[in-house]
Design a protein around this nucleic acid. Structure first.
Lengths: 351, 351
DNA sequence: TCTAGCACTCTGCCCCGGAGAGTGCTAAAT
DNA sequence: ATTTAGCACTCTCCGGGGCAGAGTGCTAGA
């Protein structure tokens, strides 16, 4: 469902029940869970002694561990994985949260960037975890317009995509080119590039450079090709949004200050986050990455719940980052609901 | 110099020397400073007993306090203020840092937003504190172009400013308007708005709405006026950049997790940060806000070092946020140097 | 196969006392 | 009149001992 699971070892029903109850309890309280508490939990109609035996077995199987001999049990990553994999496919969102999401997307929405910025804040408010958003890659979306605009002595290249996204680069073209000429070039570019992706447009610009009739035209298209390449390279990195990082600081799970600082660093490092979010975009559903499943070592004490959203042909990702004992059910429900609404909102912009 | 000072009470030279030495020492170590250490500090040729007397006097004057009776002294905010006010007007930057700054601004710079994003990272690396940047307000810069672009069924309003900044809004115009018509309107808008500020353009659009010849023209200019207003309102809030927040987590000064979380929250809250940075833009020099001088209560345990940078007629701000015992000399030097280079870089974009 | 009972282990906490750091005060020295 | 040396005093920090509580594993009986 959420991710291929490594836990094919079978569990008896009772073990599974106990494990689920324990994980749920630990997520709720953050305290190691003892057999007595589990015995009094509804649904388990066996004594604490029996549960103790089962707990020992579950520990043997690698699902649980004890902080020390006389403490209760704490779930391992394997237990979280098991718990998440067996979570009901669609848990319902609380009504207030559903409302908040609808309300957010009802508001006047300026453009994709503004929506995503707002979405991270929304997700953080809903889940009380830090949240991330990766804007849809401009790589696969179609250019709808390209213009050169004179800015004093430099020139601005503006590329508008059909998602409403705009990329811009300052380029140095021959300063003697008149504004009228720039307008002409702009019209040519828009006609030429329209409907193409960045990569395609770059090729077209290079062709144009070679077949140019005048020196200045060669110059212009050369610079444009260069800028288009640079957009393809960097545009993504610049469109990761981060929200609610305060939640990481207030999270009790991250006690050592060093841990916390590392998490922040990783979240701010685009190269780290980009890979994560791209990967999440590959699966069509909500994906959950628990602890060391994360390729970024600084995030081995966190879990990530992420879901893709569609923007035409392109795909972006949103997600939340919390402690391993995060409330997966709520987080998954929130991320899924927001991703769905977000897809609709983004489509509405361009359709 | 940095800010009008409330400390007009005179200090004897010796008291001043001792106070400065103590603050410097405390900034270095973070430990309460005792009389013995100060006595052995170069430059003070008196015994620890004498210093003890002076320390008692300085405490009486409100410059120092003791965590407890048998501890050394710790500076109060008043002491930091005094220390900062008497800092040499221009302390020199270390060569490696100067290099890093020059190197950063030598790189190819895409546009103002990208520069600012990079600048926060640069400042954080240089100072090891969190950093902020407020983009120049679009309120006072001139519009250079305005266009309507058809995006499926919706329409994108694009406004380009002479700083190279681009604002965009999705607006709903009459869906029957042809693309050719939109182009015509775009040309009219650019001609009409060019050289004007957002506010002025809004007025012009409203006039145009009233004097419109056709129903659809009235519709279009009405929507445009509305969007221009919304740009004026929200564009600023969306252009605060934040970098190096990991430094706050690793900062030893912020020990209580609650403190930390509050600081993060405040930094993420645009309304809080915006006022601060705007204020800093008012003074032409580096401004330092220490502890409770900050109007944002969550930041009463922090200090802010900020400086404006010019972008044509408009002014933006950059700054760093650290603990009250931050290394003011280095921070001020770094912020000033970056602000200067930044001004040059931004001017280069549009001049 | 489950459960009741029990001995055992380990943490968390409090209290205590000693070491150390730094002070304020006093009395002598400059 | 100011500075300095000396000293008693205060307070924190830290390690050790002891006690209460939580939770376990095991054994013996149901």
């Amino acid at each position: 469902m959420y991710r291929s699971m490594a836990t094919s070892r079978e569990l008896t029903d009772r073990k599974a029940d106990i494990l689920r109850a324990l994980v749920r309890q630990y997520i709720r309280t953050g305290e190691p869970v003892g057999s007595e508490i589990l015995a009094s939990a509804a649904g388990l109609k066996v004594s604490s002694a029996t549960i103790r035996n089962e707990l020992a077995a579950l520990e043997e199987l690698g699902f649980l561990k004890q902080p020390h001999t006389s403490a209760g049990r704490v779930p391992t990553e394997l237990a979280y994985r098991y718990y998440v994999d067996l979570l009901p496919a669609r848990s319902k969102l609380r009504e207030t949260e559903r409302r908040a999401i609808i309300h957010f997307f009802d508001e006047a929405l300026a453009d994709v960037d503004a929506i995503l910025r707002g979405t991270t804040q929304l997700l953080s408010r809903l889940t009380r975890y830090a949240s991330l958003a990766l804007a849809p890659s401009q790589r696969e979306t179609a250019i709808i317009r390209a213009e050169l605009i004179l800015l004093g002595t430099t020139t601005l290249l503006l590329v508008v995509f059909d998602t409403g996204h705009v990329e811009k680069r300052v380029i140095d073209v021959d300063p003697h080119v008149s504004e009228r000429n720039l307008d002409r070039v702009s019209r040519t570019m828009t006609e030429t590039f329209r409907g193409n992706t960045l990569d395609q447009a770059q090729t077209l610009a290079e062709e144009r450079e070679r077949s140019a009739e005048s020196e200045s035209e060669r110059n212009v298209f050369g610079r444009v090709a260069e800028s288009l390449r640079s957009m393809g390279e960097t545009s993504e990195a610049e469109h990761i949004f981060l929200g609610g990082v305060a939640n990481i600081a207030s999270e009790a799970g991250f006690d050592r200050r060093e841990t916390m600082s590392q998490i922040f660093e990783a979240l701010e490092r685009e190269s780290a986050v980009l890979g994560l979010l791209r990967e999440a975009a590959a699966s069509p559903l909500v994906s959950v990455t628990i602890g060391r499943e994360n390729p970024v070592p600084e995030m081995w004490e966190t879990s990530l719940v992420a879901a893709p959203f569609a923007a035409g042909a392109a795909v972006g990702t949103i997600g939340v980052v919390g402690p391993m004992r995060m409330d997966y059910a709520s987080a998954i429900a929130a991320v899924r609901a927001v991703a769905e609404r977000l897809t609709a909102a983004v489509e509405a912009l361009s359709r």
